[in-house]
Nucleic acid binder design. Structure first.
Lengths: 302, 302
DNA sequence: TAAAAATACTCCATAGGTATTTTAT
DNA sequence: ATAAAATACCTATGGAGTATTTTTA
């Protein structure tokens, strides 16, 4: 590295001794650096012509690259310095299906408006995979639809939402707009989420005592909320999901929410992170932002 | 540098000891490298959480740049190796006005067809400035219209050409297509090249004994051949130049070459370079190519 | 208790120096 | 005669090691 530095100075100065002066080194030291480089590359870098020193073509090529290397190197130093001092950098966030699709974008939009120098990278997965990634350290922050149980994971409640049963009009009519009992839910075909989904876990937990899970007529088992909703719209069956999601489909007359008085299911969304990891300013700011503003930002939907 | 290498391995392995194994170093050595880097950057690069090691955001940023640095570094090694072994790389050539405009392109075209991995960078200047740059080492190779006198400069004759007087028809008619004496040249207005031009030097040298230089009616003193020719076409005056140039204007009926029997001026073009500099394969090949093929490539014009 | 990193030390290779010689202007 | 680089040789910092302790899963 110091050798490369010396090389650059010799290239610019076309002189070993002038380069030495610039670097506050002795001429022999610079000489040895250059010959060491030449030995390593197996090529002459300078034509030593008596009093004049001229770079060879190999030196030309090396200088171009060395320049880029040094630029990169002090660019990264200032970048890292900035990262410590200001709310800048890239936030690598994980979101389970509903948060990533319907919650995170809203928060990110508002956050970006306040901190324009922060960029995002979002990982989407089911609830479990996101919590695992936060736990293993692949992700610094995650927003999930279930409370993480792993020790060492902080879980800030940032949002509450109702879970409701949504149906296409063709299925809703069988209940004629009257309240629906839990048992009646076995009368319609279902679209459910795959294992690992927080939504599914919440629903299964809520209806566990009614013992209807095994009786459900499951027509489709899908990977994410959007797919489930599209299946419902296509008349495949009914599903459960957060009202935050249903909000997005408000315009659709063929979609309706069933009134199931016994299913008073509130759903919690958590911001989660390892308590033992140091958060850099941007991550710190994002956590604070979520705690302070998420509820207000998303309140219209609940 | 070794520290950065160690950092990259720790980042990838998420473990100091695994990184140490990969690098055939001891774990304490890797530890000390990382802490040395952390001290230099003033930032924690890894969260040491008991048995698990996780990169901080600063590490993320550093890793991205380190990658680029290492890539550049071994890219340059292979590039330089190639430069020694094959006819590849960039040839930085200098050409005085006529060579750069009318000779070099032809040679470069034929050379590039044979050696497609060679690229060119061309410096244009007057004869003297190009010779100076070759002499000072700014340029490895130059093609000039006069024989360089500096000691240590090789000058390979690669082409000979006739220098002729070109005139617009309006000036030619005053001689009624008859042979023109040197003295008669003082009867028409002139466009001449600036000092430093090889063409100008050759002409001045040829007519020196006739003592007409001071009598010439100079209407314009221009920087390059193309400008001179356009001036002639515009009826500003006559000029002298190589037949290689006149060839390019063959289609113009309003342009003609005066028959000056006493001016039997041959012009030489030389490829010049310092004898004491090592030429890399591509430069070597170019020199050989010029010596062997330039005359044939450009013979149609003489 | 075992695995991982830190600490404490020892060692030597190499980046650095000075003095001098060689070379070409 | 002199300026520039090479050579010879010396020194000391820091990269590398081993042995051991600390920490936490």
């Amino acid at each position: 590295m110091r050798k490369l530095e010396a090389f650059c100075r010799v290239y610019e100065q076309r002189s070993f001794s002038k380069a030495a002066k610039e670097l506050f080194l002795s001429q022999p030291t610079v000489s040895s650096h250059i010959s060491s480089l030449e030995a390593e590359l197996g090529v002459l870098l300078f034509d030593r012509l008596g009093r004049t020193t001229l770079p060879t073509e190999a030196a030309e090529v090396l200088y171009d690259s060395a320049h880029v290397v040094f630029e990169k190197l002090d660019e990264v130093k200032t970048k890292i310095q900035l990262l410590q001092d200001k709310v800048v950098g890239e936030l690598h966030l994980g979101g389970s299906t509903i948060p990533a699709t319907y919650i995170l974008p809203v928060i990110m939009g508002a956050f970006a408006a306040q901190y324009p120098e922060v960029s995002f990278q979002i990982d989407v997965g089911n609830c479990k995979s996101i919590m695992d990634k936060v736990d293993s350290g692949d992700l610094l922050l995650g927003i999930v639809g279930a409370k993480p149980h792993a020790p060492g994971l902080e879980a800030d409640l940032i949002l509450e939402d109702d879970v409701v049963v949504v149906a296409h009009s063709c299925h809703a009519t069988s209940f004629a707009n009257t309240p629906v009992s839990i048992q009646d839910l076995a009368l319609v075909p279902w679209v459910i989420r795959k294992k690992g989904s927080g939504t599914r876990a919440a629903f299964e937990n809520a209806v566990e005592s009614y013992n209807i899970l095994s009786q459900l007529d499951v027509r489709a088992c899908v990977d994410n909320t959007a797919t489930a909703m599209e299946c419902v719209l296509a008349g495949l069956g009914v599903t459960v999901t957060s009202t935050a999601v249903v909000e997005r489909y408000k315009g659709r007359a063929d979609l309706c929410v069933l009134d199931v008085p016994d299913l008073r299911l509130k759903r919690q969304f958590y911001l989660t992170y390892r308590t033992d990891r140091r958060l850099f300013p941007a991550a710190e700011a994002f956590v604070r932002f979520c705690r302070e503003r998420a509820r207000a930002l998303l309140s219209n939907g609940t």
